[in-house]
Design a protein around this nucleic acid. Sequence first.
DNA 1: CGTCCTTTGAAGTGA
DNA 2: TCACTTCAAAGGACG
Length: 593
Amino acid sequence: MPQLNGGGGDDLGANDEMISFKDEGEQEEKISENVSAERDLDDVKSSLVNESENNSSSSDSEQAERRPQTRADSESYEKTRDYFSEALRRQQDGGFFKSPHYPSYPFLIMPDLTNPYLSNGSLSPGARTYLQMKWPLLDVPSSAGIKDSRSPTPGHLVSTHTKPKDPKNGQEKMFNNLPVVQHAHHVHPLTPLITYSNEHFSPGTPPSHLSPEILDPKTGIPRTPHPSELSPYYSLSPGAVGSIAHPLSWFMQQQGQPMYSIPPGGFRHPYPALAMNASMSSLVSSRFSPHMVTPPPHSLHQTGIPHPAIVSPAIKQEPGGDNISPSMHAKSPVPAKKEEDKKPHIKKPLNAFMLYMKEMRAKVVAECTLKESAAINQILGRRWHSLSREEQAKYYELARKERQLHSQLYPGWSARDNYGKRKKRKRENKPDSKPEDFSVRTKKQCVQYLPSEKMCDSPASSHGSMLDSPATPSAALASPAAPAATHSEQAQPLSLTTKPEGRMHHHFSLLGKASESSSSSSSSSSSSQPSISIPIGTTGSQSNTPILTRPIPFTSLHPSILSPPSPFHQAALRSHHSLFQSQPLSLVTKPTE
DNA sequence: CGTCCTTTGAAGTGA
DNA sequence: TCACTTCAAAGGACG
């Protein structure tokens, strides 16, 4: 598997990632220092282009590795670095900073063998051995006694995954079974969610609760499973998934806190019927918000930690837990009347992209000067497209499991339940809107930026994901990793776009040229969604042109970030580049009205 | 303080 | 079945 050796399909994705970061880091640094937003767009643009090319061509991994250093000045970086540097140091002989492609990986998790759901109290802080790598979320329970949570893990909870349970300690076995795949230097984006390698756990502070067996006798660090122990990562067919240990399973366990609300009572089994398997558990944890974990263990009440999935506005204020009473989520326990008022808000399970965003956001933020989530999300969206199918498939799989878990936890829950809870503004722009409409609607000044290439070329990517979000990730996996190749036509990136009226003062439009091959038709054949992409594409003179309309500082938008070109497509990109390179940047002001 | 913005995907609703 | 809407995360921006 790619993940294991870092080879194969991973290359594309990995490279992309690396490239982008490295460059960005440098660029960003430069920019931040000198620039500024004031910098002419042209300049920025050109610089971006140049760098992107350079970057793409250059060895990514190395650069990526360096990146952290370049950003040393970054506060966040420093901070983060401190947090995990030590921890990682052990894991990776070389040192974390050298190689991680995904330095930002938010979570380093230490194996906590306890059943996530069972963890006493479920949320015993101690149980949460979870390191946030890049972000301040580092939560390394020094104390922890976590293990207490080891408490009897109901067989049913663990059962499925732990099938090959170790007689001695089922949990341990699970841990071992975990696909431990990631090499530090080749970390997959999911890493945060899925800690494949025990090594990741290694912590400066080895969890006291770890069972000795897992720990490396020498280092005290969790031992790396023997290769034979490693299970294929997501190699299973969807159906099979449930039966095997999920890569995240350990994650979940340690967390002690399930992603979805778990009754404070701990795993008293509010959901007796729920047969949670490790994989699900892992998912649960994966979604676990770092923030939830972050707080000093001691400060948290064991039972008081609100589950991410459950957010009751009213209750939100009370961290504690009354809101989370087991009864509440479990089955509709709360009296009808109050229920309405107090009923905890059960959040929707995160979809694949959301999971991806969660994981990668910090990284992107660190890479960029941008802080605006909207801008970050655009980048993430592009990056998402640039992910290989395999990579996306992983997220789809995770998302699928999340949904599964969610459904089990909240059998009666429906997405509809949340409708109207959040007053959302309606998107005025209807999907059907025509290009013209769109342009009209958008009242923004837009700088149309011909993608010089890379910006929009995202190309590389496999749009695959969107095209077919694999119902069964495995299927996706099965498919050739090479994303781009197959879908050259879709190279067309998603259009960053949109929005109307608004608050934007300046909008930059990125006009990406659609690949020639691409049909004039919508940029994204894939999405059935009303997404803006379609209209946008047409917006420009070029049908497939994606437009980025947003006040995103170019300084922070590095092409590579947006969509790291896979080496695979480099050539193609260049060709495109040449085509459009000559085109001038046009400043377009769209009259609002 | 509440909403917007932005992304993709899942799920709900209505026709 | 299709088209469309809402919500999920996140955090700066805005009114």
